[in-house]
């Protein structure tokens, strides 16, 4: 199938984890047709895993693209080196315009490995693509979202990792009159130097964060664990609140890792997200961007979190939060409205 689409292919590389499509791959599939359109090409899906034909069919159908399954027993769990060699071989075969992975650390590994082998440029965490006369401009966040970088690439193929939601919702609404084809290729048994052993899943002991109406969340701006009480005091003003944090705060041991919100932590969508001393790195936003109202307390008006926030207070949280609580207590004691 790939042979007659040799001109202008854009490979969309997804993965399965223990037989299930990963969330990032689902999202990338939803973006596939628009993404390919941006390159004036046609999307061809590539899905790695083991015994995944059904998953591949449904991915192919929702994304509206043919899919090539790269099957290997050692791809039951993500396997970047096997993915890199399998996709690299496909790239040799069909000379794609671009090879797109979802953005995560192991996809960055697969992308970098394959780009190195096929001598292609590799750009990660791309969140916008523009076509100029004879080159492409790709945009991405740098410095934790403090700045945006625009890079130009004139070389094809280019190997990219794509941020979630770049072109979504972009599922084509026309139902194709025939299901796109799905073809399985068995990967050669070549790599014995990366041996996946299994997956650990964190068990969240309670769902308080997910169920809370208000999440009071702190980052490195908290300055130290001695200020943690300010969060509890702020949370205490609300009917149904829970405390969470950024990875920055959790890595420093100020808050337990089980309270980390973001891509590699928990996902919350409360009515109010009170982000205190959090810069708003994309990995953090991934876990809270569905919040209905976001209020930032931050010393830096240029912090990326303010872009997503509805309201912001530019102040030192260690000074502001006590004042907030004090005004709340006063309001309650007086029984009057503020």
């Amino acid at each position: 199938m790939i042979q007659n689409k040799c001109l202008g292919t854009v490979l969309i590389v997804g993965e399965t984890v223990d037989g299930r499509l990963s969330a990032g791959s689902r999202d990338l599939g939803n973006q596939a047709s628009r993404l390919a359109g941006q390159f004036n090409g046609q999307a061809v899906g590539v899905l790695t895993g083991h015994d995944i034909e059904q998953v591949a069919r449904s991915w192919s159908k929702t994304a509206g693209m043919p899919v090539i399954v790269l099957d290997h027993a050692q791809c039951r769990y993500p396997n970047p080196p096997l993915t890199a060699s399998g996709v690299g071989a496909l790239a040799d075969e069909c000379s794609p315009l671009a090879v797109c992975f979802p953005h995560n650390m192991r996809a960055c590994q697969a992308a970098a490995t394959m780009a190195w082998r096929i001598k292609a440029p590799c750009i990660t965490a791309v969140d916008a693509i523009l076509k100029e006369s004879d080159y492409f401009v790709l945009k991405r966040a740098v410095f934790g979202g403090k700045l945006r970088e625009s890079v130009s690439v004139g070389h094809v193929p280019m190997v990219l990792t794509i941020m979630p939601g770049l072109f979504s919702p972009s599922v084509s609404l026309e139902v194709p009159d025939h299901s796109p084809s799905v073809e399985t290729r068995l990967l050669a048994d070549t790599n014995h130097r990366f041996i996946p052993q299994g997956i650990n899943r964190r068990k969240d002991t309670d769902q308080a964060l997910e169920r809370a109406q208000v999440v009071v969340s702190a980052g490195r701006g908290l300055k130290g664990p001695e200020y943690k009480g300010l969060l509890d005091a702020a949370a205490g003003m609300f009917k149904n609140a829970a405390v969470g944090g950024s990875r920055g705060a959790c890595d420093l041991g100020w808050l337990p890792h089980s309270l980390q919100i973001g891509e590699t932590g928990r996902t919350v969508s409360p009515a109010l997200y009170l982000a205190c001393g959090i810069s708003g790195a994309t990995q953090h936003l991934a876990g809270m961007r569905e919040s209905r109202t976001v209020v930032a307390v931050n010393t830096d008006p240029k912090a990326a979190i303010c872009n997503l926030s509805h309201y912001a207070v530019i102040d030192d949280l260690t000074v502001f939060l006590p004042v907030l609580r004090e005004r709340y207590d006063r309001m309650r004691n007086k029984g009057d409205e503020v």
Binding site: R106, I195, P196, I199, R201, D204, R266
Partner: peptide, 9 residues
């Protein structure tokens, strides 16, 4: 990995 998963290799 994402969402509290980790792969052992």
């Amino acid at each position: 990995m994402e969402g509290g998963m980790a792969e052992i290799v």
